[in-house]
C-alpha cells in the first residue's frame, strides 16, 4: 500500500511541501511590502530632513548649508534665494485652503449624507451616489485648470482679483473634491444608526425633520466628525489643484504675531495668490533636486511636516470613529 502510486499522489503534497512554503513566503512578502513602504517613507523623510537641520546635520556628517529649527518654524518668509527657510508661511496658506475647502465641503457634505441616508428613494440614491463618486474621481490637475480657467474669471467679475492665481479658487475646487468623502463617510455613519431609534422617534410623534436632526445626526456624530477630519487631511495633502490655482508666490507670515493669525480669516486675503506646502514642493523641483543640496533637503523637511500632519489627522479620525462610536445591540 505504501508503494501504491495513487496513495503517493494523494499524500505527496502536504502542507509543508516546498511549493506550499514558497507560495506562503510570496504572499507574506507582498504583505510585508506594505509595512516596508511605510517604514521607508518615514525613514527617508526623517533621514533627509535631519540633514536639513543644523542641530542634526553634524550627526550625519553633513557640512554645508543647513537651517536652524527656529528659522524653520518661526521664520516669516519662504524662498530659497535668500535663503529664507520659514515653513510657517506655507503652512498658513495650507490652513487657509483647508479652512475654505471645509467651509464648502462640510455643510454640503453633511446635507448630502443626510439626504441620501434619510430622504432619497432607492432609485435616486442609485443615480446620486455614482455621480458623487465622479466628483472624487476627477484628477486634481483638472480641478486646478478649472480653477484658473473658469472659476477665477467668475471671482474676478464678482470681487475683482488681480492675475490668474488666488487662494479662493483653490478653496472652491478643493472643497468640491473632498465633498464626496465627507458625504460618503458621514452617510455610512448615518446608515449604521439602527432603525429602532428612528421608529422610537416617530412613535413619539416626531416629524421626519425632528428624527433627522434630533436623532440621526447626534447618533452618528462620531462618524460625521471623523469624516470631517479625514476630508480635511485630504485637503491638506492636495497638490496639483492648489499648485495651479494658488500660484507659486510665497506669502509672508509672522508666526510670532497674533495679527497674522487673524489675517488668515480675512476675506480679502483669499483673493490674493498664495503658495501651500505642496505647491512649494512642486516649485522646488525646478531646481537641482538630485544633487542633495539645500533645496533637495528642504523638500523632505516640508514633506515630513506634511506627512506628520496628515498621518496625525488620519489616526485621529480613526480614533474618534472608534472611541466615540455609540454601541447598539
Amino acid at each position: 500500500m505504501s508503494g501504491d502510486a495513487a496513495t503517493e499522489g494523494l499524500t505527496r503534497r502536504t502542507q509543508n511541501s516546498s511549493r506550499e512554503l514558497l507560495a506562503k513566503a510570496f504572499f507574506f512578502g507582498c504583505a510585508a511590502l506594505s509595512v516596508a513602504t511605510t517604514l521607508s517613507i518615514i525613514g527617508l523623510l526623517v533621514y533627509e530632513a535631519a540633514k536639513f537641520f543644523t542641530i542634526t546635520a553634524p550627526l550625519l556628517g553633513i557640512d554645508g548649508p543647513t537651517a536652524t529649527l527656529t528659522e524653520f518654524f518661526t521664520g516669516s518668509e519662504w524662498g530659497l534665494q535668500g535663503p529664507n527657510l520659514g515653513v510657517m508661511p506655507l503652512v498658513a496658506v495650507t490652513l487657509m485652503v483647508t479652512f475654505g475647502a471645509g467651509l464648502i465641503a462640510i455643510p454640503l457634505g453633511v446635507a448630502t449624507a443626510l439626504y441620501l441616508s434619510e430622504y432619497a428613494s432607492e432609485r435616486a440614491r442609485s443615480y446620486l451616489k455614482p455621480a458623487l463618486e465622479i466628483l472624487a474621481g476627477v484628477p486634481s490637475i483638472i480641478y486646478g485648470i478649472f480653477a484658473v480657467a473658469y472659476i477665477t474669471p467668475v471671482l474676478d467679475t464678482l470681487f475683482g482679483v488681480d492675475g490668474l492665481f488666488n487662494v479662493a479658487s483653490a478653496c472652491i475646487v478643493v472643497g468640491i473634491m473632498i465633498l464626496p468623502m465627507v458625504a460618503s463617510v458621514s452617510e455610512d455613519a448615518m446608515q449604521a444608526v439602527p432603525d429602532d431609534l428612528r421608529q422610537a422617534g416617530y412613535g413619539m410623534g416626531a416629524t421626519k425633520y425632528d428624527v433627522s436632526t434630533g436623532i440621526v445626526v447626534p447618533a452618528a456624530a462620531s462618524g460625521i466628525f471623523s469624516s470631517f477630519i479625514l476630508a480635511l487631511s485630504r485637503a491638506i495633502g492636495e497638490t496639483m489643484a492648489v499648485t495651479l490655482a494658488g500660484g507659486s508666490l510665497a506669502r509672508s507670515f509672522d508666526p510670532t504675531s497674533l495679527a497674522s493669525y487673524l489675517s488668515l480669516f480675512d476675506p480679502d486675503s483669499y483673493l490674493e495668490p498664495g503658495m501651500t506646502m505642496t505647491a512649494a514642493m512642486i516649485q522646488l523641483l525646478t531646481g537641482d533636486v538630485t544633487g542633495g543640496g539645500l533645496a533637495y533637503r528642504s523638500l523632505f523637511a516640508v514633506g515630513l511636516v506634511l506627512f506628520v500632519i496628515t498621518l496625525g489627522m488620519n489616526v485621529l479620525s480613526d480614533l474618534i470613529a472608534r472611541r466615540y462610536q455609540e454601541e447598539y445591540q
Partner: peptide, 13 residues
C-alpha cells in the same frame, strides 16, 4: 493609513 498618505509624499519616496 498608507491609502491616506498624500500623493506628493509618494513622489518623495
Amino acid at each position: 493609513n498608507l491609502a491616506g498618505v498624500p500623493s506628493v509624499v509618494y513622489g518623495l519616496l
